[in-house]
Structure formats: structure tokens, C-alpha cells
Amino acid sequence: MATKLSPKEYVKRGDRLTGGHRLCAGCGASIVARNVLKGAKDHPVVVGAATGCLEVSTSLYPYTAWEDAYIHTAFENVAATVSGVEAAYQSLKKQGKIDKPFKFVAFGGDGGTYDIGIQSLSGALERGHDFVYVCYDNGAYMNTGFQRSGATPLGAWTTTTPTGKVQPGKPQQRKNLTQIAAAHNVPYVAQASIHDFRDLISKAEVAFDTEGPAVLVVLSTCPRGWRCDVAQSVNMARMMVQSCYWPLYEVIDGKYVINYDPKKRKIPVADWMKLQGRFSHLFKPESQHLVQELQDYVDREWERLKALASLPNPGATTE
């Protein structure tokens, strides 16, 4: 289980994604990338990125914001691309041609992970490559102008689920990528959020130290797409975690561990939905039921997660 880094230790770890990149103010993606890489400690890292905001904003030729080796090839295949890099490393290491203790990380947005990239991710997880997959999940295709994805919450406005007379935003609930990843029985899967970067780094550290595939799914605010205040970016993620819309948890060798339970401080989803313009249409009387539907979904999923976490350790022998 991930134990949080002390603040003293945190400040000692330098940035491997430098300033000067072109991500928007308030964007969660750079917070994800910077903190995940702190979890790699002193290891040399090869970073892979799927096409997306993080990719276009950090590698604008002839500049780069990455201190480490970096590769981007396309949108739907960062897991496959990085699996190829890792396979090359394993081969060269076995032949004694390389001795550095490399780590490998693949970054994808929710579009590149939940949707177009899910096959490539699934294949790489099943094959057991020694790498960390990180999804920065802002709940839509933000890079191309806020189109809906499989991660977009119910009722949200996006440019492909616009609000109109007969359709109040996205008609479907989101899918649960974290549990899809966990269903691959990989050694480590975790959900994290940009607001708790110490938790995020600790999870990244576990992920990098894990032999075999590890997956981090990180809630990442997009003020542009969510139509929310830039200054509220981190707070927005905090509130979403506090509402149990985005629980912080780990799946360690199949065992579910909840890292944060707000208990009595659990807030309604409406509290943060009201602060995000993508949901503003839901607060009209005729669509209020959708807010309740999302609340019911979140409550149900939270109870299910707690039930999963109460199961005995699957690795332990039964009495």
C-alpha cells in the first residue's frame, strides 16, 4: 500500500517535466505528469504519450519540456508503443548491452485510454510488460475541443453531447476504467487525484516499484472543458473526491483498499456540479432529475467499492 511522502522528501525531488510547456492555466495534466515522475525516484525513465493535450503541449518541435527520453507515435497506441520500448530494453538488458535500471511510463488522456486506446492498453496489461500506465482523466476529448468520451459523466455538456430541446447533455453514465484495468489481474491499479499530490506520488512510487504492469487513473481538472474557474482547478478535484464521485483507492494483487473515506463529510455531487458550467443546464427544473440520477449512480458505486474493499485478501488462505 502506498504511504504518503513527507513534505520534506517531496521538495527534494526535482521536476522532470519542465516549465514552459503550453498547457493551459489550471490544467491537471501537468500536475499529473510532474508528480508521477517524482515517483520514479532516481531511475532513468522513458516517457510515452498518447496524442492529446499533454503531448501537443510538451513536445512542440524543436522544443521539449521532458527531461527524460520521450516517445509519441499516435493516439490509440501509447501502451503498445511503450510495450515495444520495454521489450527492446528487456532484450538488450538480457544480452548485456544495457545495464541502467530504466522505468517506463505511458501517459494517455481518457479519450486515448477509455475509448480508442483501450485495446492497446488491454493487450499490454495482459502481456505483462513492466511499465506504468497513467490515464489523466478529465472526462472528455479536451484537446480537440471538448467532445464526449467514455469517461464523461452523465448529463455533461460536451460539443458532441450539446444541450438541446430533446437532449440535456450526455445521455449515458461513464464507464469504470479502473475496474476494467483491475480485471486484468495486474499487480497494481490505483485511482488518484491531482488535489492530493502526495498520495499521487506515493502511488506512482508503488507503481514504478511494482514488477509488471501498473495502472494509475488520475482525476485531472480541465477548466476549459468543464467551464470552471481556473483558480478552482485543484479544489474542484478535491470536491469530486469528497463526494465519492472519484474515490481514492488501490487494487493491490486483487485486494481493494480505499485510501480515503469522507464518511460524514461526504458532500452531494451537486455541490461541484453547480461550479462547473458543463452542468449548468441540469439545474433547470426540467432536468433536475439527472442530477439525482448521477447522485444515485455515485452512491451505488461507492457502496459497491466499499463492499469490494471488505472482501478478504484474495491472496490469503481461507479459514
Partner: peptide
Amino acid sequence: VESEHSAMSACIGSASA
């Protein structure tokens, strides 16, 4: 790999390494 798209993607990653 699980598809030819991933085959070529992995090949690019490997050759780039």
C-alpha cells in the same frame, strides 16, 4: 501483440529504443 496496429506500434517503440 493483440493486433497489427499494436505490432507496428511496438516495432516503432522497439526500433526507437
